Computed example of a mutant assay.
Amino acid sequence: MSQDQATSFGPVLEGDYVLTAEQVASYQKNGHILLRQAANEEEISLFQPAIEETVREAAMGLKPLEERDTYGKAFIQICNLWKMNPVVARFVLARRFAKIAAELMGVDGVRIYHDQALFKEPGGGHTPWHQDQIYWPLDTDKTITMWMPLVPVPEEIGSMTFVDESHLNGFISRELISDESHRTLKEYIEKKGLQQVQYGALAAGDATFHAGWTLHSAPGNPTPNTRQVMTVIYYADGTKALEPDSNARRNDLSAWLPGVQPGEPAATELNPLLYKHG
């Protein structure tokens, strides 16, 4: 789609989503929150076709579901759609979402780390327990992911399951998303008797936000319809890059912070400033 098509939508996603003090406090205490209708039905109807089209084009040649590993069965994962399609960029770079992220974290400004489409196909497997930030070479705990369905998500699929206050513990396990991470972290959660929260059915445009260290997982998809979800990862402006301590973080440093050296500001053309207070 052309840039002209991208700009023809007019003032879409420009209005603010007003958070209450109670919502901000709840997020900071628990490490996750559900916000209903962060994008309305009309807004989703404008962007969903472009996101779906971009995912389908990028996923051509993907192995059949039964031939993938546990991670691959969990979802079709396509990153940085905003660089592939100017219409999708209008959605991903929206000030409204970035402002929510900044206010929930209590920071003045946020940059984008990257976006991800996570499409869980019919018969798609569960997403194992994990912490996102074991992948990110970011020297901060001020990181957050917006997880927004583009289609209604019924109860039998549900949103992700979060562990209350788990973000306050920081790093828990080095295991990447896998059967092993699921076993290790499930045992950790059960031994400590930690509180789990699952928000159930969601409408298109509802959104959960969770911290980078928050433990979370998601069920498989027993329905005949693809669970279409778009995510955007944000971090506090002024964050510096960490010295990578794993291959996953080395790969992420190269992919999402190209040219940045450890100790330098985590800011490249792939990480524009999306919101700044005032």
Rank of each mutant, 00 (worst) to 15 (best):
T184I: 03
T184F: 00
L185R: 04
L185H: 08
K186E: 08
K186M: 02
K186W: 00
K186P: 00
E187V: 15
Y188G: 00
Y188M: 06
Y188Q: 02
E190K: 03
E190C: 02
K191D: 05
K191H: 09
K192V: 01
K192G: 04
K192E: 01
G193K: 00
G193E: 07
V197L: 02
V197A: 10
V197Y: 06
V197S: 14
Y199G: 08
Y199W: 01
A201L: 01
A201K: 09
L202R: 07
L202Y: 02
A203P: 00
A204P: 03
A204R: 05
G205R: 03
G205V: 13
G205D: 04
G205C: 00
G205Q: 07
D206L: 06
A207N: 14
A207S: 15
H210V: 12
H210Q: 04
A211C: 05
A211P: 00
G212V: 05
G212L: 04
T214M: 03
T214H: 03
T214Q: 01
L215E: 13
L215K: 10
H216E: 04
H216M: 05
S217V: 00
A218L: 03
P219K: 02
P219Q: 09
P219C: 01
G220N: 09
G220S: 05
G220W: 03
N221D: 01
P222E: 14
P222V: 05
P222S: 15
P222K: 08
P222R: 11
T223W: 12
T223H: 10
P224V: 03
P224T: 11
P224S: 11
N225F: 12
N225S: 10
T226Q: 07
T226H: 07
T226K: 08
R227S: 09
R227N: 12
Q228W: 09
Q228N: 07
Q228I: 06
V229K: 11
V229S: 10
M230W: 06
M230E: 12
M230H: 15
T231Y: 06
V232E: 05
V232F: 05
I233Q: 15
I233A: 14
I233V: 11
I233R: 14
I233L: 13
Y235F: 15
Y235C: 04
A236Q: 14
A236W: 04
G238C: 08
G238D: 15
T239N: 13
T239Q: 13
T239S: 15
K240E: 06
K240N: 11
A241Y: 08
L242K: 14
E243A: 12
E243H: 09
P244C: 06
P244G: 10
D245C: 02
S246L: 06
S246V: 02
A248R: 02
A248D: 01
A248G: 14
A248Y: 02
R249C: 01
N251W: 00
N251D: 12
N251E: 08
D252R: 05
D252C: 12
L253N: 10
L253T: 15
S254G: 08
S254C: 11
S254P: 01
A255H: 13
W256D: 03
L257Y: 14
L257R: 09
P258M: 09
P258H: 13
P258E: 12
G259K: 11
V260N: 09
Q261L: 12
Q261S: 11
Q261N: 11
P262E: 07
P262Q: 03
G263D: 08
E264T: 00
E264W: 08
P265D: 11
A266K: 07
A267L: 10
A267S: 14
T268S: 12
T268D: 08
E269A: 07
L270S: 02
L270F: 06
L270N: 04
